[in-house]
């Protein structure tokens, strides 16, 4: 029964995975570019955000078409509604990565205020959360989704740590204020990205259970 319809639904979810991995790469590379002062890579990320936006519109269009032509019901409907929401979160995470790349370009060749250790760690945690959230979506794994939300705390803690450290640096040497503030923006972008991922996890729970619930309220 409904083989073509099932195929469309499956390909829709595959497309979300593709977009998820595009965004994940963008997050990791944005911090890599920052760390290595790689302006080419930063510019690539900024340009690449267009592709992510385009992907979002393509998938959204497919969702609308499925709704209009196939009248999806029950879990199928929940999957599509979840995807429409997940797309927004993914796109915004992509924007945060683009933001980091823009900051990197802005920083250019200014001398570093500190060695970058916690920011790459935040980026890695965030990327891992994103991967897991995509996994939980495909597998309808609410337990995994909940664990991802728990991981958000780790990112929040790293954010705190980076923030305090940079405050100290600025207090000690006001000449660093401009540069340190930019790094705070970077940390903030990563922290917001992780929050977005917890939204995705809530959609996973919705698909699986039919209920909207706040499974991972962030401290920030």
């Amino acid at each position: 029964m409904r083989k073509n319809y099932d195929r469309s639904l499956k390909s829709l979810q595959d497309e979300v995975l593709v977009m998820g991995s595009m965004v994940e790469k963008s997050v990791l590379r944005s911090v890599e570019a920052l760390k290595n002062r790689d302006l080419d890579l930063a510019n690539q990320i900024i340009a690449g955000d267009q592709d992510i936006n385009q992907k979002r519109f393509d998938i959204e269009e497919q969702c609308v078409e499925l709704i209009a032509t196939q009248q999806p019901m029950a879990v199928d409907l929940r999957v599509i509604v979840a995807i429409l929401n997940i797309l927004v979160d993914l796109e915004r995470i992509g924007d945060h990565a683009e933001g980091i790349a823009k900051i990197t370009v802005m920083i250019g060749n200014e001398p570093p205020v500190k060695p970058l250790i916690d920011l790459p760690r935040m980026a890695e945690r965030t990327a891992q959360m994103l991967r897991d959230s995509m996994d939980s979506f495909i597998r309808r794994d609410v337990e995994l989704a909940k664990r991802v939300c728990d991981d958000d705390e780790e990112v929040d803690n790293l954010y705190n740590q980076v923030f305090r450290e940079l405050l100290l640096i600025m207090a000690e040497d006001p000449k660093t204020i401009g540069r340190a503030t930019r790094l705070i923006w970077v940390a903030h972008n990563l922290e917001r990205s992780a929050d977005r991922i917890t939204n995705i996890c809530e959609r996973v729970a919705f698909v699986a259970t039919g209920h909207m619930e706040d499974i991972g309220a962030s401290k920030y």
Binding site: M73, A74, V75
Partner: peptide
């Protein structure tokens, strides 16, 4: 019933995967 049916048989029927 149409967004989150409780019974698997309902789910199969309304999503068109019945039989």
């Amino acid at each position: 019933v149409f967004t989150n049916p409780r019974d698997k048989r309902t789910e199969d029927y309304i999503t068109g995967r019945f039989g």
